[in-house]
């Protein structure tokens, strides 16, 4: 795998845009399943009801990678997620998620040779306000 060539071709390339309508029930289910007890995350009647800060980590774009990106799905796994929270997400919001590849690098670990693809998704709401940035480290086993 020529990592330098992949970097050159794909890093910074915006390749996907998708919309999400925010509904109350999954917000509550997500929060409670994670052990949240604060009413602002679990009680839709709370005046400050909102999604938990890591909520956007659950969203995926229309495609995970740009068209033609050389990857074998069976050798792929999730290396981690970073969520930068910017503003609350409320029930009824309509989010737009735009994806680009933020970084590509290789390293070795317990799974052997691995290519790390950092997929960045930036979320705005219906007022075009930036509400979250999610970095998803996709790991592709090499060899």
């Amino acid at each position: 795998m020529d990592i330098a060539a992949l970097n050159e071709k794909y890093v910074g390339l915006e390749f996907d845009e998708v919309h999400f309508d925010i509904e109350t029930e999954p917000m509550v289910e997500f929060a409670e399943a994670c052990g949240e007890t604060l009413p602002k995350f679990t009680d839709p009647s709370d005046p400050d009801f909102q999604a938990v800060p890591s909520y956007t980590a659950r969203f995926h774009g229309g495609r995970a990678l740009p068209e033609g990106f050389p990857i074998v799905q069976e050798k792929n796994f999730d290396g981690g997620k970073t969520v930068e929270w910017k503003a609350p997400i409320r029930a009824g919001d309509r989010l737009t998620g735009r994806s680009h590849i933020h970084d590509i690098f290789e390293k070795t670990g317990r799974s052997g040779g691995m290519m790390f693809i950092v997929h960045r998704m930036e979320f705005t709401n219906q007022n075009d306000e930036l509400i979250a940035i999610v970095d998803w480290k996709m790991i592709q086993k090499l060899g």
Binding site: A31, C34, G35, E36, L38, S54, A57, T82, V83, E84
Partner: peptide, 22 residues
């Protein structure tokens, strides 16, 4: 990741979690 965030809220209900990196 969500479980770790909830632990922070349990400790400090008024905490605003600006970034969670796992």
């Amino acid at each position: 990741q969500g479980i770790l965030v909830s632990m922070i809220h349990r400790w400090a209900p008024n905490a605003v979690v600006h970034r969670i990196d796992t």
